[in-house]
């Protein structure tokens, strides 16, 4: 595939004595959708938090476009063109849509004063861009008044503001209705068509299977399978594999490999 966007080399993370990740190697190329799957506690969220700079890895190296980056943090991750839609959506629910979209990178001019008009115009544009027009709210609406799908919309609008090269969607379809889930998928295809990359994390393997070019299966902090869509016959094959990984003893008699 195309140009290498980001690469994790031997990333390990431990919380005290607990190993969350033990030496992960993962790369994302330009324009591909990587489906990251794994059971609860497999280390998906920890990995995402490291990629987005919220957590610092205990050891390992992060390369952006082939170059290693020192002192990786949330601000540097965003600078590198990585935007994350977190599982909890990372919204401040008492603030306006505008404040949430520009959280952490407020548009400010002279002496830190906000460019309020610019922010509002941009927020309006973003909301329109993701097909998020409604008469019920404005950029000045309080996020706490929005429905789950609309909140997800705000989180996604925030992620596409900077024309990011890589968008990480952590369980973006959890707790969404069918139509809202469809909108998220529609958005993923749009992003992919525009040549940007996505890491899609999901519990629902059918969702991930539909959308990803490549699958990375995590289990207990390590990558246990890396395969492309072309090499995988069906979602069931992935599910079977994950079940064998999760319960090796139960299947050992059957001679699973």
């Amino acid at each position: 595939m195309g140009e290498r966007l980001i690469e994790l080399r031997d990333i390990a993370k431990s919380f005290g004595r607990v190993y969350a990740l033990g030496g992960i190697n993962l790369h994302v190329d330009k324009g591909e959708v990587v489906g990251l799957i794994g059971d609860n506690g497999a280390g998906k969220s920890t990995l995402i938090k490291i990629l987005s700079g919220v957590l610092k890895p205990t050891s390992g190296e992060i390369l952006v476009r082939g170059r290693p980056v020192a002192n990786w943090n949330a601000a540097k991750s965003r600078e590198a063109g990585i935007e994350t839609v977190f599982q909890d959506r990372a919204l401040a629910v008492q603030q306006t849509i505008v404040t949430n979209i520009f959280m952490g990178r407020e548009l400010s001019g002279f002496f830190g004063w906000l460019r309020v008009a610019d922010e509002e115009r941009e927020a309006r544009r973003l909301m329109r861009e993701i097909g998020f027009t409604s008469r019920v709210f404005t950029p000045q609406s309080i996020v706490g008044q929005l429905s789950g799908g609309e909140r997800q919309g705000v989180a996604i609008a925030r992620a596409i503001y900077k024309q990011a090269d890589l968008i990480i969607l952590d369980e973006p379809t959890t707790a969404l209705s069918l139509t809202e889930t469809d909108k998220v998928f529609h958005f993923v295809r749009q992003v992919k068509a525009s040549g940007r990359s996505i890491i899609f994390i999901g519990h629902n393997i059918y969702h991930v299977f539909d959308i990803a070019d490549r699958f990375v299966v995590l289990d207990r902090g390590t990558v246990v399978l890396e395969t492309t869509r072309a090499e995988t016959a069906s979602a069931e094959q992935l599910i079977n594999f994950m079940q064998r990984v999760a319960h090796p003893a139960a299947n050992s008699g059957a001679g699973a490999q």
């Binding site: 987005s52 700079g53 919220v54 943090n73 949330a74 601000a75 991750s77 965003r78 994350t84 977190f86 909890d88 959506r89 990372a90 919204l91 401040a92 629910v93 008492q94 603030q95 404040t99 520009f102 959280m103 952490g104 990178r105 407020e106 400010s108 830190g112 004063w113 906000l114 309020v116 925030r158």
Partner: peptide
């Protein structure tokens, strides 16, 4: 003005509202 129209004021708001989110967004 500082509270409503300045970077500092907005960051005080989001930090008080949801410090975890603010952290995830690089504040």
């Amino acid at each position: 003005l500082l509270y409503n129209r300045h970077r500092f004021g907005v960051q005080v708001h989001v930090v008080g509202d949801n410090p975890d989110s603010a952290n995830e967004m690089g504040v």
